[in-house]
Nucleic acid binder design. Structure first.
Lengths: 237, 237
DNA sequence: TCCAGCTAAATTGTTGACAATCTGCAATCT
DNA sequence: AGATTGCAGATTGTCAACAATTTAGCTGGA
């Protein structure tokens, strides 16, 4: 409840400021997004207006507006008179996404290398250390979000908000990949070696080297995905 | 009216298919988008729900849903209880956009060069010829959309739908730049020389050369923008 | 058994109404 | 005069109701 303390002079952190700036639709949108990213809503699943509205205690209007925003973000598909469905991303579109993501990551590395600070280098090195401690298959549930955070932080450090927004949108969409072996166990050690290479290239402040390291890492991730079981639409045992 | 002919066996091209697939909200969204891109709605202008709804003869819900989609697309800003405003893009964000666009165009050139067909090369050459005929200041109204089409076509030819979607979204947003000298008269001849260089690099099927030509063209466009009159928030005489 | 057609329930599309908030202007006070 | 308060109009936020469409189950017949 600490975020609702009153009497603060900063309206952006008070309950008043919260009410002034936050609409029901935004909250619904965030909640549906959370359900999709967490896997609570599977790719391809139908999302019913009334079910969401009833669950969250809001009217259908707010849910419908949230649907429109999520469609524009590429996370759901709206079929008129039929309903809203969590998008599925096939292998061909997945390839395209990896290609674009390689381009964005390459750009992030190129932008960040000349401007990275020592504190930022230390922060990334600590994250790689943390990742190293989560390589066991049973700690994969920790490795996965930490890995996302590592890459997100690099793009954030690049200092280009437009790039960061595009990157995050793409990463959100890539959660819907049917076979996401990059999220599974295979090849994690290799992946962390590549992380080390990325940080080393950034620390050397060599833009070309950093760009190459970032691009190669994404391409390796793509290869790991393609090498995974081709036909496993559901979470295999 | 040709698109509404009935009796066709293909529902996607018939009036029935149109009604089945198109919602009021989509039409409203397209109309507002058109108004923004055409300049009918200036950057920073307020867009009132009822005015749009009344003008298009629909209820406010459809307009509100369209607003949510347009906000996600980065074209409008929603302030709770205050209204919807066409976004303004300042010089700092413009720089970031040019940087990202350079990355996307570079990727498009790199992807297209190895796979471009002779027919596509001819098509691009014809477009450069057309552009050459519109360099006079008075025919700028023709040059501008043709220039957009030229670049859009290149990204389309690259064959990556995700890249194309991101590129188009970014271009839409860049229409909201306050000083868009790339859209004004200055430096058009130089610009078309660069177009020729792009097509030549693509025709040589040299990925690196094509990527460089694309990136340099965007950077030159950025420089032309920065060289324009810094302080002209309204359309100067 | 299988299929066509029908009915009822569920779901979505759209509109209108009411409540809450903001804006602009006039009246009032210091 | 300048600032503040209060009020009416306009605008937005949210919800509930109605219409249209789809979906599912059922019945009847070949």
């Amino acid at each position: 409840m600490t975020e609702f303390r009153s009497g603060s002079s900063d309206p952006s952190q008070s309950a008043i400021g919260f009410l002034r700036s936050t609409s029901l639709t935004s909250l619904v949108q965030e909640e549906i997004l959370r359900m999709i990213l967490s896997g609570e809503l599977d790719a391809g699943a139908q999302v019913k207006e009334f079910a969401i509205a009833d669950r969250l205690g809001v009217g259908r209007s707010s849910v419908r507006e949230a649907f429109r925003a999520l469609e524009e973000a590429g996370l759901v598909r709206l079929e008129k008179n039929r309903g809203v469905f969590v998008r599925q991303i096939g292998d061909d579109e997945a390839e395209e996404m990896y290609s674009v993501r390689a381009g964005l990551d390459e750009l992030a590395g190129r932008l960040l290398a000349p401007r990275i600070t020592q504190a930022e280098i230390d922060e990334l090195r600590r994250m790689v250390e943390e990742l190293e401690g989560c390589l066991a298959p049973e700690s994969f549930a920790i490795y996965f979000p930490l890995n996302l955070r590592f890459h997100d932080r690099i793009v954030e450090m690049a200092g280009n908000r437009k790039l960061l927004a595009m990157y995050r949108r793409l990463i959100n969409e890539m959660h819907l990949l049917r076979r996401r072996s990059l999220l599974r166990g295979g090849g994690l050690l290799v992946s962390n070696d590549e992380h080390r290479a990325i940080v080393a290239a950034l620390a050397s402040r060599d833009a070309d080297a950093a760009a190459t390291a970032m691009r190669d890492h994404v391409r390796a991730g793509r290869d790991r995905m393609l090498a995974s079981n081709p036909a496993s639409p559901r979470s295999a045992a």
